[in-house]
Design a protein around this nucleic acid. Structure first.
Lengths: 341, 341
DNA sequence: ATGTTCTTTGACAACGATATCAGCAATTGC
DNA sequence: GCAATTGCTGATATCGTTGTCAAAGAACAT
């Protein structure tokens, strides 16, 4: 631990020849300080290298300058991107990020989180899927008057602060892309039913298919849970049936990778005999062979924005930021080609 | 923010009919409190639901009950495992984890980190590769008397608190495994030269090969930087040469995946025409087809241990934990088979 | 000239813990 | 039996900020 005596507000006040309260006013950008004294104080601060003690500030003002990230997520890349986005905003604003790993099945989650918040006087939360859809949790937070912003909630109307992606639109657009390549025998693998993205992605798919009057074969629609294994198993089931689709659209890249392995093990050639589509543009999408067509969401940007919203609410000083929906992008790679026969 | 008046040490002292100092003594497990009063105080604490205010504690005692994770790492899985391990220990001990993303090329890194620590009065650091090998950074930390523990440093002798893996031994063992399958034409892809693991893994390989009197073809040894792309390029280079090895051993799974893609694009059959070996047992190792033989390190456990070491040093109360080397495990999958010809 | 408002400032209390030091009783040493 | 040590306890100062409130002077209205 650094042992050098640190500069306090008192030292500054002496140097600038004002009261400590006036220094505090300058630090906190309060009004009603004359330009003259403000300059003098700022100069002293610079000269002495004064930095307010965060713990003293927190103790007195009941604010910690820390926000927490709530997550319960199997996808490490997603988590890393989210973290990285939030950290960027934190760095700019002088806030700090603490992590809180949760279990969405934990019955006492709401209580425990509120306890954690009051323990550390956390200023606000960023909530990620699937926690973003736990109405009881959000209700607890509302009830305790906790500031939070949500990433990708299913129901945007009820929540005031959120960022979301257009899962439905992207899935719809990708399905049309598939259809435009001549495919009509299309399989689909749903994601974990607790994630709002799962139903949105499926709905985008089924709406697009239905609108083009393409029959939906229920044997080709399976439910996974966003893991590689679940995709592999779903893929095996679909590919074991006597009639195989010419495309399988999986709700994320891991499951798509599972399907690809299943197909390759059965000797099915990709993409000539089976096209595979993923979602999320995880690194693996580019690393497979053939590389995976998928949908890219600006996850890091979204997290940035969520942090900005939160800090806009928490920190009266910084400007308010509005909830927003982010657009996804279709990434077309080797795994999707025109139907050839 | 929760607005309910919180219970303070004063309330407890009144309820238990002792001075606040005595309550403080009980909280901090100090000696010289009679069993009688201790019980009384503990009962009051329980009854009132008292929780010490962390900010007040920090202000007075100059300890924040927060540790920070320093990282600059391209591998998100690794980072996630590290985090998860540390968080587990944090949860048990009531500490909190804050993240600090660094850039190892930043010239002022040492200064900035020390500033960060004194700003937030961070109690200690956990340092991950490649930062674990930056001697100047570690020297700065030593100089500022910062507590830290290091994950996977190259030079164990100089650092008192570390956890490491046996990269050398594992690489040596895997190479012998390869040789035992009849292979003598072996390629190797080194990792990023700034990571200590790179040289250890290469040394394990080259020592094993040399000891068996197997010639080392320098055209088959390339340097990558642990990314998929670098592995892909190195793979192309090796496989473009007129004479190809029958195995390529890459210093991590991402590079191995790159090699696999390069081979598949060239129509080389795996594993019959080319075996591929990775390192780290990243999720992708299992998700490729054929699945990748690799080396598994107990990353999460290592992070746990690093956290325990750190908190043992920081927190005089908890027990000291010793530096330790963790053993890796060979994971043999489809991508390595006997040489057939 | 007088009362009222607004701007700027500072003295001091407060946040909720730990640190210091002193006091008193019980134990020990000689 | 008396001094010295030890065990337990509490009054009060303290950490470094922000909050409260009042005061002084300038500006304005009457």
């Amino acid at each position: 631990m650094s042992n050098q005596m640190s500069v306090t507000i008192k030292d500054v006040s002496k140097d600038a020849n004002v009261s400590i309260k006036t220094v505090s006013r300058v630090i906190n950008n309060e009004i009603n300080v004359s330009e003259d004294t403000k300059d003098r104080v700022l100069q002293s601060i610079l000269k002495l290298g004064f930095k307010p003690n965060k713990n003293a500030q927190s103790l007195r003002s009941k604010r910690s300058y820390m926000i927490a990230l709530l997550y319960d997520n199997p996808n490490k890349h997603y988590l890393a991107d989210i973290q990285s986005g939030i950290l960027q905003v934190c760095k700019e604003t002088g806030y700090n990020l603490v992590l809180q790993e949760c279990n969405y099945q934990n019955k006492n989650l709401g209580t425990e989180i509120i306890e954690f918040i009051s323990d550390f006087q956390i200023d606000g939360l960023i909530v990620t899927p699937p926690l973003s859809d736990m109405d009881d949790l959000l209700a607890s937070l509302d009830n305790a008057k906790v500031h939070y912003s949500i990433i990708a909630p299913s129901d945007k109307r009820t929540s005031s602060s959120y960022v979301s992606s257009n899962d439905y639109d992207a899935s719809y657009a990708m399905t049309n892309e598939i259809i435009s390549k001549g495919h009509t025998d299309i399989g689909f693998i749903k994601g974990h039913h607790k994630h709002s993205a799962s139903s949105l992605r499926y709905k985008g798919f089924s709406d697009a298919v239905t609108q083009k009057n393409i029959p939906l074969n229920s044997k080709w629609v399976k439910e996974g849970n966003f893991t590689f294994d679940s995709g592999f198993n779903a893929g095996l089931e679909i590919l074991d049936s006597p009639l195989c689709p010419s495309v399988i659209f999986a709700s994320n890249d891991y499951m798509a990778a599972g399907v690809m392995k299943a197909a390759q093990m059965k000797g099915i050639k990709i993409p000539s005999e089976l096209c595979i589509i993923g979602f999320d543009d995880s690194p693996i999408a580019e690393q497979l062979w053939p590389s995976l067509s998928t949908v890219r969401q600006p996850v890091k940007e979204m997290a940035c924005h969520a942090a900005k919203i939160l800090l806009g609410n928490v920190d009266g000083l910084s400007q308010q930021t509005e909830s927003r929906e982010f657009k996804s992008e279709l990434i077309l790679r080797e795994s999707l080609v025109n139907l050839s026969d």
